[in-house]
Design a protein around this nucleic acid. Structure first.
Length: 461
RNA sequence: GGCUGAGUAGCAAAGAGGUUAUGCUGCGGUUUGCAAAACCGCCUAGCCCGGUUCGAUUCCGGGCUCAGCCUCCA
């Protein structure tokens, strides 16, 4: 029985879909004005794991993740570059998709863009104005009157009085209340715009998610996710907009992933302490990044460090080593390993615990292999692969994991194989000094040999 | 100041009111021509102070420290 920690109630709750077997999930995606960083990778991977796991449990999942392709930062960046904002966003959407493919993130069922849904956004704002919840200020901008929504603050566990006590919001005399937020923003000179009943302008950030989620998933759906920093005000505002507009409950379960940190401080664009996904991919394999993310539960903060990325590689080596050279059989059903794994994942997607089930399996595969129990080895191997694949691990070619692609200046795989064969001949002749010399020479070039019986396998280190 | 979370061994990170988490690292052993890999064993724990309990790292209360949100942010 799946339990999900619901930010709305701050409790783990048993997950019950609105329609049996059909799950509708919306996740706030990226604002595309720059390359994605590791923090974005965490959202991608966290919800990729949720998506994959729900599918593996037999659910039909409609997973929507939006793309914010119009906002102040995009306009600003486009102006700095002296380019059209669409040229900018298209470029970074492509880059984002490239990063996702590299990380083995499954594409969502739909990736709506704000600029493709202006009509729905305008309709929603119109309804809010008609209901007396939104109003137009003297500047022409349209605002949402938070005081008109009784439940305002229910997601983030605060109320307007708490917020006012914070006293950190700049006074904007155009608004009736400093906490009112913008739904439609008037275009300034040379800014991109769309026609609307209130004049030429563009949508505010919050309204696009309400409009797109409702359009694709309906007024009331199962899961809404995103980074923890979006809980307030973004998600709070989405609830206010959607529920005021439709009169229905918006999303049942709210999931928020924790941050990637650098030196125990949040990684973010504004702090400038970030590493882009592509930057890290130059030094580490995509699977190492994914494994690193999965070593902590998705809600916990995760401190970035090269030591942990290196450790991730070593851990994956262990799993791949267990799988190496196996003939796969049929995975057993309802084994204790699988139960352990499923129970962990059912407990709010506890990937660290699920990984421990994978290592139990790896150890028992190694034991079975050592004792020449071929049937058991092949069955457990199939199970390990199946479970690991469920969270996006061990999907790569096993030999390729160890041998990689030889880069310039390195020995080719064929050259290594030839030397390994020479060494095998030397071993047959009991010429240990030659055999050891070949092995030592290879070791110096980053090739590590392992003898197993009459065979020798190798890996790049 | 208000609202959330978190504090576990060398590093990372989980569960469970009493019974080995797990991975990486280190040490010892088995295995190996020697190695490597593998297997077995071991070393490092539970921020502080109270309380509940036969028993708490786990529950409760109070501190302390850290992070996040309250402003664009995954």
């Amino acid at each position: 029985m799946l339990k999900i920690y619901n930010s709305l109630t701050n409790k783990k709750e048993t997950f019950t879909p609105i329609k049996a077997n059909k799950i509708r999930m919306y996740v706030c995606g990226m604002t595309v004005y720059d390359y994605c960083h590791l923090g974005h990778a965490r959202v991608m991977i966290a919800f990729d794991v949720v998506y994959r796991y729900l599918i593996s449990q037999g659910y039909d999942v409609n997973y929507v993740r939006n793309i914010t392709d119009i906002d102040d930062k995009i306009i600003q960046r486009a102006n700095e570059n002296g380019e059209n904002f669409q040229a900018l966003t298209e470029r970074f959407i492509d880059a984002m998709h490239e990063d996702e493919r590299a990380l083995g993130v499954k594409p969502p069922s739909a990736e709506p863009k704000a600029t493709d849904n202006i009509e729905e956004i305008i309709n929603m704002i119109t309804t809010l104005i008609d209901k007396g919840i939104a109003y137009q200020g003297d500047s022409g901008d349209v605002y949402y009157a938070v005081a008109k929504f009784a439940d305002y603050g229910k997601l983030s566990g605060r109320n307007l009085d708490d917020l006012r006590a914070g006293d950190r919001v700049a006074v904007n005399t155009d608004k009736n209340d400093p906490f009112d937020f913008v739904l439609w923003k008037m275009a300034k000179e040379n800014e991109p715009y769309w026609e609307s009943p209130w004049g030429k302008g563009r949508p505010g950030w919050h309204i696009e998610c309400s409009a797109m989620a409702t359009k694709i998933l309906g007024n009331h759906f199962d899961i809404h996710g995103g980074g923890h920093d979006l809980q307030f005000p973004h998600h709070e505002n989405e609830i206010a907009q959607s529920e005021a507009c439709t009169g229905e409950h918006f999303a049942n379960y709210w999931m928020h992933n924790g941050f990637i940190r650098i030196d125990e401080e949040k990684m973010s664009k504004s702090l400038g302490n970030f590493f882009t996904i592509r930057e890290v991919l130059e030094k580490y394999k995509a699977e190492e990044i994914r494994y690193f993310m999965l070593t902590s539960q998705y809600r916990s903060p995760l401190n970035y460090s090269t030591e942990q990325l290196d450790a991730a590689g070593a851990s994956l080596d262990r799993l791949y080593t267990a799988m190496r050279g196996l003939k796969l059989g049929t995975a057993p059903k309802n084994s204790s390993y699988e139960t352990h794994f499923i129970n962990a994942m059912n407990d709010d997607f506890n990937t660290p615990e699920a990984l421990s089930a994978l290592f139990d399996l790896a150890r028992d595969i190694n034991i079975a292999r050592d004792s020449k129990d071929h049937k058991k080895t092949s069955e457990l191997g199939a199970l390990l692969l199946e479970l690991a694949n469920g969270i996006g691990l061990l999907e790569g070619d096993i030999e390729a994991w160890f041998k990689g692609v030889n880069t310039e200046g390195e020995l080719s795989n064929g050259a290594v194989d030839a030397l390994v064969q020479q060494r095998l001949n030397a071993k047959t002749d009991k010429d240990w000094s030659l055999a050891d010399k070949i092995r030592d020479d290879l070791q110096e070039q980053g090739i590590s040999l392992e003898d197993s019986g009459a065979e020798t396998i190798w890996r790049r280190t």
